Simulated scan of single mutants.
Amino acid sequence: MILVSACLLGHKVKYSGGANPHELLMRYNERGRFIAICPECFAMLPVPRPPMEIQGGNGKKVLQGKAAVQDAEGRELTSYMLTGADKALKIAEAYHARVAILKEGSPSCGVHRVHDGSFTGKYTKHPGVTAALLMKHGLNVYSEKDMTVGRLEELIAEDIRQDRI
């Protein structure tokens, strides 16, 4: 199975209450190989909610206890982000997932970049908390921006082959 950020599959779990539907992923979702995840929802954070950003680092540093997550109203949310990431990892383990396709820019799911903590729309080239945890545990983690028809076909074919072994 392949983990996919729920917002990319049209679920209205985005901090603003919306979704980030990704046409290609939504089309391939019909093949039954995806498991929709939302670490923020797993952590019981409300929808909608104020935006969050990592302060003083990135997802890897949050996992090491060297950075924090805070929302735009100043609330400390690090423990929630760690809980959500841990639940996503448990789902990956339960379903023997080896791949995740996550929402770029999210403090949880960002793969290549996340907001820099200034709440000004600027980014830093680092993963979010859940992406960092999944990578640490050996999953191949991609952004929706990495997806092409060819790449997605390869990932699904490999997932099916692994199920048969």
Score class of each variant (00 low, 15 high):
5 S>D: 02
39 P>Q: 02
126 H>V: 06
32 G>F: 05
4 V>P: 00
121 G>Y: 03
7 C>M: 02
146 D>L: 06
27 R>Q: 13
28 Y>N: 04
72 A>D: 00
92 A>D: 08
55 Q>G: 04
41 C>S: 09
149 V>N: 02
142 Y>V: 01
44 M>S: 15
1 M>P: 01
162 Q>N: 04
91 I>G: 00
159 D>G: 08
127 P>D: 05
48 P>E: 11
33 R>L: 06
22 H>G: 00
92 A>G: 07
95 Y>I: 08
45 L>T: 14
32 G>T: 09
19 A>H: 05
16 S>T: 10
85 A>K: 01
43 A>Q: 10
117 G>W: 03
41 C>A: 13
98 R>H: 13
16 S>P: 00
16 S>Q: 05
103 K>S: 14
137 H>M: 05
137 H>S: 04
63 L>W: 03
49 R>L: 12
17 G>M: 10
14 K>R: 15
39 P>T: 09
40 E>V: 12
92 A>R: 07
134 L>G: 07
26 M>A: 06
144 E>F: 02
8 L>Q: 08
43 A>I: 05
161 R>A: 14
112 H>N: 14
134 L>K: 03
127 P>L: 12
62 V>Y: 03
93 E>Q: 15
160 I>V: 13
47 V>Q: 01
41 C>N: 06
55 Q>F: 03
107 P>Q: 04
70 Q>H: 15
11 H>F: 14
110 G>H: 11
115 H>N: 11
19 A>T: 15
10 G>S: 03
21 P>K: 08
102 L>W: 03
101 I>M: 03
158 E>Y: 02
39 P>V: 14
33 R>C: 14
37 I>N: 02
95 Y>C: 06
148 T>D: 06
91 I>N: 00
19 A>L: 12
52 M>P: 00
102 L>K: 13
55 Q>P: 01
155 L>A: 12
18 G>M: 07
122 K>W: 04
74 G>T: 14
73 E>T: 10
96 H>C: 06
36 A>F: 01
15 Y>A: 13
102 L>F: 12
162 Q>A: 14
39 P>F: 10
119 F>A: 07
152 L>F: 12
10 G>P: 00
33 R>K: 13
135 M>R: 10
145 K>S: 04
136 K>C: 02
17 G>E: 07
73 E>C: 15
108 S>V: 13
147 M>H: 06
89 L>H: 12
69 V>M: 07
127 P>Y: 08
72 A>K: 01
13 V>Q: 10
149 V>H: 05
55 Q>V: 15
149 V>M: 04
3 L>G: 10
131 A>L: 02
148 T>K: 01
19 A>C: 09
66 K>T: 13
113 R>E: 08
8 L>C: 05
35 I>Y: 06
31 R>K: 10
22 H>Q: 08
82 L>S: 10
54 I>P: 02
154 E>Y: 10
65 G>S: 07
22 H>R: 05
106 S>E: 07
133 L>V: 07
69 V>I: 12
42 F>D: 01
73 E>V: 13
14 K>M: 05
69 V>G: 04
15 Y>P: 06
74 G>Q: 08
160 I>E: 02
130 T>K: 00
65 G>C: 08
8 L>F: 07
97 A>L: 07
130 T>A: 12
155 L>R: 09
79 S>A: 14
66 K>M: 15
113 R>L: 07
66 K>Y: 05
144 E>C: 04
153 E>H: 11
